[in-house]
């Protein structure tokens, strides 16, 4: 606990109470919906029925909804698709961005100004949806997972952030390595990257979250619903309210357990979409330091 500076007056009881209430409400507004969704996804049919819908107080718990989701079928496949796209996409994007950011970060190197300009110009003008769609179609990428990766593989924004970070590394360090005969690939790998773990983690998170959350590219480019990523499944079954388990099956029992209620399954799909973000986030959050983000916002 940091102590109050001596010049600062003590807060009034009213002010302190108000502040506590406001901050608590803000935190609750973020956390409570997630709590309700997670709890409902873990509840049995009886608890859901008793609650009359979403469950706010813990009752009987079960993992049936998740068993249903991961027992093969639509959601299992969508999770695999999203995971694959996210992993491949993030590795590719991060690699391309690191290389290009370093390649453009040495002052005075050949062509770095015009090439950097090509990236910066993208902030001013976006080509628009239709020509972008047509080029993806011309390349034969409709219904290919690459259509979810390649068009968004390099973000000029992330590249500029990373480049700004690399430029802060003292030039003398890199120059001395060059004189010692190290190639640029070696310098990047052995000197620059070890000094840039924080920014790499943050940019990696940005890319990974972007791929995991990718929705609109899939709407445009993936017509075959057998190839849908998780976000489209989320839309179809949760937002548009389609039932994953046909209603007449709900009275049966399969493999010894009662089928979970559709609401629990829907909430479980939300949780599945949510969990990877919640898992990675705490590890990267501490890197949201001033440097990275200010560079990011100023672009």
């Amino acid at each position: 606990m940091t102590t109050r500076p001596v010049w600062q007056e003590r807060p009034t009881v009213f002010g302190l109470t108000l502040k506590t209430v406001v901050l608590t409400l803000i935190v609750l507004a973020m956390v409570y919906p997630i709590y309700v969704v997670v709890l409902t996804s873990l509840s049995t049919a009886r608890t859901v029925t008793e609650a009359g819908g979403l469950v706010t107080l813990p009752g009987e718990l079960s993992l049936d909804a998740y068993r249903e989701l991961f027992g093969g079928g639509v959601v299992t496949r969508a999770v695999l698709v999203s995971t694959g796209v996210t992993v491949v996409g993030t590795v590719l994007s991060l690699g391309l961005t690191i290389f290009a950011a370093y390649g453009l970060s040495r002052p005075g190197s050949v062509l770095h100004r015009p090439l950097l300009f090509l990236f910066l110009l993208t902030f001013l003008f976006t080509p628009g949806m239709i020509p972008s769609y047509l080029i993806v179609r011309e390349l034969g990428l409709i219904d290919s997972y690459w259509s979810l990766i390649l068009p968004t593989a390099v973000s000029a924004f992330n590249l500029v952030v990373m480049r700004a970070f690399f430029m802060n590394i003292p030039g003398e360090v890199l120059d001395s390595a060059r004189i010692d005969g190290a190639s640029d690939f070696r310098i990047l790998w052995r000197i620059v990257l070890p000094m840039s773990k924080g920014v790499t983690a943050v940019i990696g998170l940005f890319y990974a979250v972007g791929y995991w959350n990718a929705f609109f590219n899939a709407v445009l480019y993936i017509n075959d619903n057998g190839k849908w990523p998780l976000q489209l499944i989320l839309r179809q079954y949760v937002q548009q309210g389609m039932n994953l388990v046909p209603n007449q099956r709900a009275v049966d029992t399969v493999a010894g357990y009662a089928l979970p209620p559709n609401l629990a399954i829907k909430m479980a799909i939300i949780v599945v979409a949510l969990v990877p973000v919640l898992l990675i986030y705490p590890f990267v959050q501490r890197h949201f330091t001033k440097g990275v983000i200010i560079g990011a916002v100023k672009g």
Partner: peptide, 25 residues
């Protein structure tokens, strides 16, 4: 600087295909 250029080329290639070609499109 050829190594620096070689590092930049893949990203520039994607940029041209998925940004500048559609811009002309």
């Amino acid at each position: 600087d050829w190594q620096l250029l070689a590092m930049t080329v893949p990203a520039v290639g994607l940029l041209i295909v998925f940004h500048y070609v559609p811009t002309l499109g």
